[in-house]
Design a protein around this nucleic acid. Structure first.
Length: 501
RNA sequence: GCGCCGCUAGCUCAAUUGGCAGAGCAAGUGACUCUUAAUCACUAGGUUGUAGGUUCGAUUCCUACGCGGCGCACCA
């Protein structure tokens, strides 16, 4: 499949030499006494060269051979530590050293001590090869200096980083840390919801009828049933059916799939949290969202205030609130409840939007565009945008004080949408009319309009309790928490074209 | 889908108006018992993303294609 390089050939020769001498290149196990970080924590300066004996395992991250001694850096999942190998102390074990390479996994047992230069190190009495690395990692060299660490070489190509995430992770501890943060965040969110008596559930990913969002789906085919199935674009409609069934608080954390463009904030599959709470409305959802976000950020980062590209984002509740209608009216004078399409187009063109694109828009799309251009870029601090026009929100309940609006909010941070919530529409007759409107839009060419979901209407007819629901994009949350510019940096295996065209 | 940029040794990058494709690190051999970008000497390592074209001669200029990055479009 790929030609072997001279570097790899050299490693394979060493493997052969080791095996010829009866040393297995790929061992079965090694009894570690500590992680590297754990071992480092054991040592105190008054121990001098009589530190405790530890058994460690990890990769060779650096190798400085010096004739009858050698210094290696051993790196495991937790940290690095220097090894000091001496021919006169290792006997036969020293032979292995001639056939070790950077990136090999080894196990060592020895005493902790500090070198003359002050580096905490292990002085092994035994070295065991655990797994040979036959292909060199794209490792950089780092030199620590006053100005911080400088790296020479290394893995810089973003394409290789995403395609070979294993190599990216192996050489970049900071990338490993991003995904540890992600796991900590998701675990904390589950605990937060579990404590509030939310039930974690799983709903279908393969669906005969997709809905719950405006998006184009992936289509697949079930052979035995000989029918098309869609990968879900949202969990919403299945979760709300559970409220009808008496599961009063439910949530799901899982992948949604949208067959759309990819960029630094969109991956075709992404992780969503959706939750629904019976007998609550969108005001309750706002309070819940504030508590959840402030809590998870504080848990992962230790602070509710983040410094991000020179400005500080403060997640201390309550978040700012701005009304969709008022916010736009204050910025450009348009009242979207009464403005004509021509007025909206005029404002957009005046603000520099391409005229032909604007003329092609109408209805809900046009309102949405006005919001995106006029208001969205202003929403840097965590901000709830409240009360969206009805045509934009076919699953949200009509506003209790304005029939042109819905009780809905979206949360924006850094100009990007992070969460979306509403008082859930539970009047089956109203929902039926909204679906019918969607069907008309679909017939008029809007590929993203909802299909008519008769089973969902039937469920609502049994009586769904009033409820608040909220969806939170986990990937985008992680971009904020881990301070990563691209969604690909918070997804282990982002979507890529195949390597061979 | 459109535009711009990138693709050269295992890795990171050079290469004058088109004129023998180079360096650092990694690798191999040798020296070296406290190094940490270890050091020193020597050696090897390339179908310059792919396919065409122009030219005496192409990493360089042209066309197409592939993959990627960024921007736009698309996308609650």
């Amino acid at each position: 499949m790929e030609e072997r390089t001279y570097v790899e050939a050299a490693r394979r020769e060493k493997r052969a030499a080791l095996e010829a001498a009866g040393v297995p290149a790929f061992a079965y196990r090694y009894d570690r006494s500590h992680s590297v970080a754990g071992a480092r924590a054991l040592y105190r300066d008054d121990m001098e060269d009589q530190g405790p004996v530890v058994a460690l395992a990890g990769r060779i991250a650096s190798l400085r051979s010096q004739g009858k001694t050698a210094f290696l850096d051993l790196e495991d999942g937790s940290a690095k530590i220097q090894l000091y190998l001496r021919r006169d102390e290792l006997g036969e074990h020293y032979q292995i050293l001639d056939h070790l390479d950077l990136d090999d996994h080894i196990g060592v047992t020895g005493r902790l001590f500090r070198t003359k230069r002050g580096e905490l190190s292990v002085r092994p009495s035994e070295v065991t090869l655990l797994a040979k690395s036959l292909r060199p990692l794209p490792r950089g060299k780092t030199q620590s200096s006053e100005g911080g660490a400088v790296t020479f070489g290394g893995l810089a190509d973003a394409e290789v980083r995403y395609r070979q995430r294993y190599a990216d992770l192996a050489v970049h501890p900071e990338v490993r840390e991003v995904f540890r943060q992600r796991a900590r965040a998701v675990t904390w969110i589950r605990r937060f919801l579990d404590e509030r008596e939310f039930l974690e559930v799983e709903t279908p990913i393969l669906q005969p009828l997709y809905g719950g969002a405006a998006a184009r789906p992936f289509v697949t085919h079930h052979n035995a049933l000989d029918m098309p199935l869609y990968l879900r674009i949202a969990d919403e409609l299945y979760l709300k059916r559970l409220l009808v069934g008496g599961l009063e608080r439910v949530y799901e954390i899982g992948h949604d799939f949208r067959n759309e463009g990819m960029d630094r904030t969109h991956n075709p599959e992404f992780t969503m949290l959706e939750l629904y709470q019976a007998y609550a409305d969108y005001s309750d959802m706002m309070a819940l969202t504030e508590a959840l976000l402030a809590g998870v950020i504080e848990h992962v980062l230790g602070s509710r205030t983040l410094e991000r590209s020179g400005l500080s984002l403060d997640f201390t509740p309550p978040f700012r609130r701005v009304s969709f209608i008022d916010g736009i009216r204050e910025r450009c004078g348009l009242d979207l409840r009464t403005a004509s399409e021509e007025e909206m187009r005029g404002v957009l063109i005046e603000l520099g939007e391409p005229a032909d694109a604007v003329r092609a828009m109408g209805g809900a799309k046009l309102q949405d565009e006005v919001f995106k251009v006029v208001l969205e870029p202003q929403l840097v601090q965590p901000t709830f945008v409240l009360d969206y026009p009805k045509p934009l929100s076919p699953l949200a309940k009509e506003h209790r004080s304005d029939p042109a609006l819905t009780e809905r909010f979206e949360l924006f941070v850094g100009g990007r949408e992070l969460a979306n919530a509403f008082s859930e529409l539970n009047d089956p007759d109203d929902q039926r009319r909204r679906f019918e409107d969607q069907v008309r839009q679909r017939a008029a060419g809007n590929e993203e309009a909802h299909a008519f979901d008769a089973d969902y209407i039937r469920a609502l007819e049994y009586g769904m309790p009033p409820a608040g629901g909220m969806g939170l994009g986990i990937d985008r949350l992680m971009m904020v928490i881990a301070d990563q510019p691209s969604i690909r940096d918070v997804i282990l295996y982002p979507a890529m074209r195949p390597e061979e065209g």
